[in-house]
Design a protein around this nucleic acid. Sequence first.
DNA 1: TTGTATGCGTTATCAG
DNA 2: CTGATAACGCATACAA
Lengths: 335, 335
Amino acid sequence: MTIYDISQKAGVSIATVSRVINGSDKVKPSTRQKVSDVIEKYGYTPNAFARGMGLQSLHTAGILCADSSDLFLAKAVFYLEQELQANGYESLLCCTGYNLDLKKNYLDLILSKKIDGLILVGSHFIGTTEEENQYIKDGSDRVPIMLLNAAFDYPNVYCTLCDDETTMFETTKSMISGGIRDILYLYNIRSYSGIKKIAGFQRALQSFGIDEPQNYMRYYPYDSSDANRIAAFIEKTAKELHFQGMIAADDLLAVGGIKYAQKHNLIVPKDLSVIGYNNSILTTCCTPELTSVDNRLETLTHQLVQTLLGVLAGEEMPKMSVFSGKLIKRGSTYF
Amino acid sequence: MTIYDISQKAGVSIATVSRVINGSDKVKPSTRQKVSDVIEKYGYTPNAFARGMGLQSLHTAGILCADSSDLFLAKAVFYLEQELQANGYESLLCCTGYNLDLKKNYLDLILSKKIDGLILVGSHFIGTTEEENQYIKDGSDRVPIMLLNAAFDYPNVYCTLCDDETTMFETTKSMISGGIRDILYLYNIRSYSGIKKIAGFQRALQSFGIDEPQNYMRYYPYDSSDANRIAAFIEKTAKELHFQGMIAADDLLAVGGIKYAQKHNLIVPKDLSVIGYNNSILTTCCTPELTSVDNRLETLTHQLVQTLLGVLAGEEMPKMSVFSGKLIKRGSTYF
DNA sequence: TTGTATGCGTTATCAG
DNA sequence: CTGATAACGCATACAA
């Protein structure tokens, strides 16, 4: 079934059929009806490849993501796909893993599929050197690039993010205001947003006159999907650092803190206050439940897709959209 | 940059360039080298649409999934994408949500993108009536359809699944053998695999002479992402049903059981043994840790993709591949 | 081994 | 408002 078959059966030219398909208003209603009926009757669907050839687009957005099974990233991908779908776009997903030496390859691969826009999910995709980010510049003159939770100032690159620095600053401040000054900060990623969180933590400590905040920070380099291993790591840390509070860059790390406390008969939050990040499903799975930062993922993804749609429609859109996170208080803290 | 430009610069015809691109062996090595050099030099990439038009394929698999942020489904999607990518296929993801009245629409939508094969992730996509499954039959004469964790016997439909019935049978048996006969079975989905699990549970009870197993079964109809609400539901159930053991169709439901126990000062597993399903990250986040069934997701996804590749290559492939689940023992049970 | 010519199914530009 | 016709960029049967 091609456009020719339809045009023949409807007794019009293929141009008219094409107009009907694409909703042109330059078609007489009666003609439109006639053609629509034939299309309906034969269940005709335009060939996607030929269509793409004419339109230079298949209404598809590429999504690059390190690991779509990660709690946070999975939710991001889900929201993005839903929002794109609701606006007539499909999602081409490509998981890169965390070893991003091949960033450039993944980019080329997904760009070669003629996507209309590219979404980079998570701040892993932004490095600290010009060199590392060159691939983004290269890609940006082919399609608009949308960054979720990362910032990069360059033409045709748009960023949507949670202000992790400020959010972590406020979060830390509220713990200190609650009377806890010895706070372990645990993190596992040194990405753009990871660095922002660290900065917020440090600034909060300093604002309370606590010097050398880096003394309180620990980097967890192992498998972040095993709460026990995390707990063991914290246990080791506790031997050389005293802390009554713990703030983690991720909920799972925080759960590790709660498990550590349980093993040592420390009562949370009496003996140890714990705060996580991402406000994931894990927050309600542990005991006590985890106070955590909600980084407005649904809002971010919504905004990101709307920005992309605007850019594709040729409108002038904000290069950077920043939202604030919010502390969700649960049983692992007093304040 | 088109194939014409390259052919000109290399001093050959477009046919030769095409042959080089597609790895035809009917090209003189020196010619191949010459053309490859030009392609390399100008960074030429064939236009995907035009290419698809000739080949009738873009090496893309469609993935339909109810909710890619669900712990289990997200992991499935991740593994599938990785395996597909490793074999040169891209993944077009489409999340349908659980309201599947529009199954047919989603199917048409994703099929219209000219995918090479369609993967349905999770057993939600299989209904109990002929009517409900008609859309699969319709789709199957366009592309091969691969079912993950569901079974449906029809030409061009291939199934890869964990034998949930037997696995749940064995799991339940081991709990009963451990001396626990009053077992609450909690489930939240009545899908194909959900029904299989129920059947396994019932068969186990009956094999020990426990009649009317349905008395021990409870359907949880609310939001399954809130462990507290689940705990509250179990609390209510406990008022009209005595149980010393609990088996859940999903880890999160099981976590709800552990939370219920904590609220009532019941010691797990002394007063209540709990078993979950899926062996997800949640198993190590609660206290005590959750004994759970590993349903071999990685093995399943691997097999599924290999089967798809075989089918696409025209090989004869098994219509159904069944694997056994395995109980992973942790602190929430004695046995 | 290489080149020529044609077809693939659309969209879009012009005339009419 | 409608129709003829030229792209679009590539694959491939057929010739050479």
